[in-house]
Amino acid sequence: MTVGELQAYGYFILTALLVFLLYGYIFHLYRSQKTGKRDYEKYGRIALDDDITSEPVEPHTKKEKKGEA
């Protein structure tokens, strides 16, 4: 196999993977929203309630490092 072929296969596989990931992400976003697992739209509030005294939309605590998935 030449470098060129290797490059072509590598390119194809990686692109397919990235496309798959992107569509997976779209699916993930809308499903989480629909099943109520996570409301993405509430993050839009971060820009609006941005005084240092405002209540964070989702407080950052040092202990809770892991996400749900």
């Binding site: 990235l18 993405y40 739209e41």
Partner: peptide, 23 residues
């Protein structure tokens, strides 16, 4: 959003456009 007082129309779309643009 801050100046108009309106939250981003679709936060999900903003996330998608981000990855699309990056790639």
């Amino acid at each position: 959003p801050k100046e108009s007082g309106q939250a981003v129309y679709s936060y999900k779309l903003s996330l998608l456009s981000f990855w699309g643009l990056m790639f």
